[in-house]
C-alpha cells in the first residue's frame, strides 16, 4: 500500500512537472480552441483584439494556478456559453454533428459491400 502511495505521489509530481513544462504549448492549444467574440471568425489565438489579448492572459493565469484544460474550457463556457468553444462537446445537441459523418461512412461502406461483393 505504502509503495503504491509513494508511486502515486511520484507519478503526480512527475506529471505536474510535465504539465508545467508544457504550459506554453497548452496555452496555445487552449487559445486555438477558443473563439473570439469580437472578431467572430477567428480563434483567440489568431485574433488580436483587446478581448482576445485579455483572454490569453487569463488562460495563462489559470494554467499557473494549476487548472486543467477541461476546467478552463468549463470556466469559459460558463461565462460565454458553448459558442466560445471551437471543439463542440458530445452532448444531446451535438450527437448528430459527431455521428452523422461516421454514419455516412458506415452506410457508404455497406452500400459498397452490398453491390460489389455480395452480388458475386
Amino acid at each position: 500500500m505504502k509503495i503504491l502511495k509513494l508511486f502515486l505521489i511520484i507519478f503526480f509530481i512527475f506529471s505536474f512537472n510535465h504539465l508545467n513544462a508544457n504550459n506554453e504549448e497548452m496555452k496555445i492549444k487552449i487559445t486555438k480552441n477558443l473563439r473570439c467574440l469580437v472578431c467572430q471568425g477567428q480563434s483567440v489565438y489568431d485574433s488580436d483584439s483587446e478581448f482576445a489579448n485579455s483572454l490569453k492572459v487569463l488562460v495563462d493565469k489559470k494554467l499557473e494556478k494549476g487548472f486543467s484544460e477541461t476546467q478552463i474550457y468549463d470556466y469559459f463556457k460558463d461565462k460565454y456559453g458553448e459558442w466560445i468553444l471551437y471543439d463542440p462537446e458530445l452532448n444531446k445537441n451535438t450527437y448528430l454533428l459527431w455521428l452523422l459523418p461516421i454514419l455516412i461512412f458506415l452506410i457508404g461502406g455497406a452500400i459498397i459491400f452490398k453491390s460489389f461483393i455480395f452480388k458475386k
Binding site: N33, S43, G81, E82, W83, N93, T94
Partner: peptide, 22 residues
C-alpha cells in the same frame, strides 16, 4: 461541420461553434 450550427440554431436556438478540432 459547416452547416450544423445553422441547423441547431434554427431548430433549438442553441448556438455552437464548429472549428478546427472537430
Amino acid at each position: 461541420g459547416t452547416v450544423y450550427p445553422i441547423f441547431l440554431d434554427v431548430l433549438t436556438s442553441e448556438k455552437i461553434s464548429v472549428g478546427p478540432p472537430f
